[in-house]
Computed example of a mutant assay.
Amino acid sequence: MRQLTLDLQPAAPPSLENYVSGSNGEALTALAAWLAPDNREPLFFLWGESGAGKSHLLQACAATCSDARLDPQLASLPTSSGLWAVDHLEALADGGQVVLFNLINRLRASDGRLLLAARLPPRLLELREDLRTRLGSGLVYRLRSLSDEEKRAALAELARARGLELSPAVIDYLFARVPRDMRSLTQLLRAIDQFSLEHKRPISLPLLREVLQTSPPT
């Protein structure tokens, strides 16, 4: 029995181009404009529920990125950079809040910029008041998770870009059995494409069953 290990299908690096925007087109356009070299707005804040693509966009911006879930004190945040990014602000410890507050105060003098992300808008985060005020002074955009219909349409479009046609029955089968975040769906699509090419077989429900099945542990 052949096991297709999806971990062997590396995900494409996050970029603005491969972010599936759905109803987030305005936020994506605003972020692209903010990243322009002549933009002097120091702060750009993205908020929204898990799975909306906040981390994808932070990683896509070629910023010096820190994750407050992994480093709540922001101890590894570099002291010099043209573009910083801090993800998961809700996880900041007291010391990390001080570091971030001081960084924001330095931004205008250094012409630096800071991209931030959290589950909630600045005013609702459980952070020190002066930091919340600073965070809310920049551009603030909400990201919304894709609906299932938007994900289905996006998956079909990604397949067409590969020269594949996924029938509604195939998409229904996948959605009933695999994680529905776009990163997992995109990774799975590459695996299906590879399996189909290797075996010279069209994409069908029997082929999907083979792709998704796992062999017993050895």
Rank of each mutant, 00 (worst) to 15 (best):
A191Q: 15
L8M: 02
A176K: 12
S66P: 00
W84R: 00
L4V: 09
R152I: 11
R144L: 09
P206L: 09
V98Y: 03
L116H: 00
A60F: 00
A169L: 14
D111I: 00
A12M: 02
T29G: 08
Q213R: 12
Y141V: 04
F44H: 00
P179F: 13
L46R: 03
K200F: 08
P206N: 03
P14M: 04
V99E: 08
R132H: 06
P179A: 14
L189Q: 02
Y19N: 06
A75T: 04
L189P: 08
F195P: 00
R160A: 15
L74Q: 02
L164W: 14
S55F: 05
T64K: 12
L143Q: 02
L8C: 01
L31M: 14
A156Y: 03
A33H: 11
R144I: 01
L83F: 04
L77G: 03
P202A: 13
I192F: 08
A154R: 09
L185S: 14
F195R: 15
L164T: 01
S110Q: 13
F44E: 08
E149Q: 07
P14K: 00
R128N: 12
V20T: 11
E157G: 10
E210F: 00
Q59A: 15
L120V: 03
R201L: 13
Q194R: 15
A60G: 08
R123N: 11
L208C: 07
A63N: 10
L124I: 02
P72I: 01
L28N: 06
R183V: 15
N18Q: 01
L6R: 06
R132S: 05
S50G: 13
S167T: 15
G136D: 13
A169I: 06
G136R: 00
A36M: 08
P202K: 13
S196N: 12
A63E: 12
H88P: 03
Y173V: 14
S23L: 07
P202T: 10
A161N: 12
L89D: 09
D67R: 05
L124H: 14
T29F: 10
L8S: 04
L4Y: 13
R69M: 04
Q73M: 03
N18W: 02
A33R: 15
Y173P: 09
L188Q: 13
P10A: 07
L103Y: 04
R119C: 11
L143M: 06
E49D: 15
R190K: 15
D38Y: 04
R180N: 14
E149K: 03
K54P: 08
S215F: 02
A11C: 06
V178K: 06
A30V: 08
R209G: 07
L107Y: 01
E210D: 07
L114D: 05
A91Q: 10
E198L: 15
D7K: 04
Y19C: 06
L174D: 12
D87Q: 07
F175V: 13
L43P: 02
A33W: 07
G25A: 13
E165S: 15
A169S: 14
A63G: 05
E26I: 12
D94C: 05
L127G: 03
P121T: 07
E41K: 05
D38T: 12
S147Y: 05
G48F: 03
E150N: 09
K200Y: 10
F45Q: 05
D67S: 14
L92A: 05
V178Y: 09
L103R: 08
F101M: 05
A11G: 09
T79Y: 02
L116V: 07
I171S: 07
E150T: 09
C61R: 00
